[in-house]
Design a protein around this nucleic acid. Structure first.
Length: 424
RNA sequence: GGUGAGGUGGGUGAGAGGCUGAAACCACCAGUUUGCUAAACUGACGUACGCGCAAGUGUACCGCGGGUUCGAAUCCCGCCCUCACCGCCA
């Protein structure tokens, strides 16, 4: 949710930024500011009315005390009449607030200056790439074939007990999952992220806080009886730990890492995109979340990108880093870097991590502020997060890229965690 | 699932129609004292939205939403949540 004071102060920049998403920035901002003006006018009118009413009420009490009954009755009558006006003005204000709010939640974040304008993935900007594309042997196969050949993952069994997109991991396949989770958590905590184990279901307020609700409602599993949502990412519960919180500036940056399963309905997905591990309804992910001061947040973002790159290096996977264009970026993000690993057997790039700075967009919804040491004033913090990492596509790439005629090699960094160095 | 208690500022917790944006204590912040720290003392100390060049000032907020009243943290109704005990259970 855009912060209106900033929007007013930096109007031209905000308009230009929204244009990069392919929106009409000028029109959107104009609409927002007009709605805000209407809200302000309504509030001033109501406040004045209530102020008068408060004075009258006080007068009634005073008149009673001094025994001035006639004056008391007169004031009382006047106050009763004011009540009607107040009621009307209150309705006007409420309507103005609702109008503003529904506009606000419909406007995405303003992209950072470095974000390229663009409509789709075509316009994303490659920042750098790393690792070499492996030359696979004759007869190399995609991960879904490897998964069944070595009995690592049973997709059909998952279909039986739950449905498509809920795979069952077996034997070394299951162990590989657990090893990766542990490996990522160890690396993240070593880098200064404090581990958290959050709930896997969240309430409505949390869904709103990080921006999943109301607009991405259909993407989450909803436990209707209790009105809880299965988390689509650990970002939701972990960031919401700081909802309605004013942290001290000296406590920043706050860094957390969390492993959770993630649940996504992925309504509308189909075809080769969803084959094998490419897109699942339930998957494992280790997340990193950072909260920091505005002036430091982009430095943090770079640190997070470096950190994620280090994970992929350790797994010996070839990857590239993209700076997403305005049109391809998530609704709530100001700047997003995507990490894609090369899937050698599928001959395509697979997204394994998305690292974003949300600036104050989430913080404004969350009411997450920090108190400055210098003047003790509160200010919205910046929130950032990134996957470090999402498992399924890492596993896909690991299996495909490290396969040879006799099996699959486990990268050295992971062997202490798997307890085996080959799958065969 | 049953029964009971309760939701007040960063924390504990008083208040039971106007004297209450809210006692007291603790914490936090500034200062005095001090070789340093501690202690002691003094002062300041909620959030949000407005108005004002500013000093300042208006309004709202005591879980949420309604109601009664000239006036509600306080009375009434509905909802949500938390805790305790019992039952069941990994």
């Amino acid at each position: 949710m855009l912060y209106l004071p900033t929007l007013r102060a930096e109007r031209a920049a905000a308009e230009a930024a929204l244009n990069k998403r392919g929106l009409n920035g000028a029109a959107l901002v104009e609409q927002l500011l007009q709605a805000d003006d209407a809200r302000r006018a309504a509030q001033v009118a109501l406040d004045d009315c209530l102020a008068e009413s408060n004075l009258l009420a006080k007068a009634v009490g005073d008149f009673f005390k001094t025994g001035q009954k006639a004056e008391a009755d007169a004031a009382r009558e006047k106050s009763t009449a004011l009540k009607e006006t107040a009621k009307r003005l209150e309705a006007v204000l409420r309507e103005a607030e609702n109008a503003l709010q529904s506009l606000l939640v419909a406007v995405p974040n303003t992209p950072h200056a470095s974000v390229p304008a663009g409509k789709s993935a075509e316009d994303n900007e490659e920042i750098r790439s790393s690792g070499s594309i492996p030359q696979l042997h004759e007869g190399a196969v995609p991960h879904w074939d490897l998964a069944s050949r070595y009995n690592l993952i049973d997709f059909e069994l998952g279909v039986k007990i739950t449905g498509a997109g809920f795979p069952v991991y077996l034997g070394k396949g299951a162990r590989l999952q657990r090893a990766l989770i542990q490996f990522f958590l160890d690396r993240n905590t070593a880098a200064g992220y404090t581990e958290v184990q959050p709930p896997h279901f969240v309430n409505e307020a949390s869904g709103f806080g990080t921006g999943q609700l109301p607009d991405k409602e259909g993407q989450m599993y909803h436990a209707v009886a209790d009105n809880l949502y299965a988390i689509p990412t650990a970002e939701v519960p972990v960031t919401n730990l700081y909802r309605d919180v004013i942290v001290d500036e000296s406590d920043l940056p706050i860094r957390h890492t969390a492993y959770t399963p993630c649940f996504r309905r992925e309504a509308g997905s189909y075809g080769k995109d969803v084959r094998g591990l490419n897109r699942l309804h339930q998957f494992d992910k280790v997340e990193v979340v950072t909260i920091d001061r505005p002036e430091d947040s982009y430095g943090r973002l770079e640190e997070m990108v470096q950190h994620v790159a280090g994970l992929l290096d350790a797994l010996e996977l070839p990857y590239r880093i993209l700076r997403l264009c305005g049109g391809d970026m998530g609704f709530t993000s100001a700047l997003t870097y995507d990490f894609e690993v090369w899937s050698a057997a599928q001959q395509r790039w697979l997204e394994v991590s998305s690292v974003s700075n949300f600036e104050t967009y989430q913080a404004n919804r969350l009411k997450l502020r920090y108190r400055r040491t210098s003047d003790r004033k509160t200010q919205l913090a910046h929130t950032l997060n990134g996957s470090a990492l999402a498992l399924p596509r890492v596993v896909a790439a690991l299996l495909e890229n490290h396969q040879d005629e006799n099996g699959i090699r486990i990268p050295a960094a992971l062997v202490p965690y798997t307890g085996f160095d080959r799958i065969s």
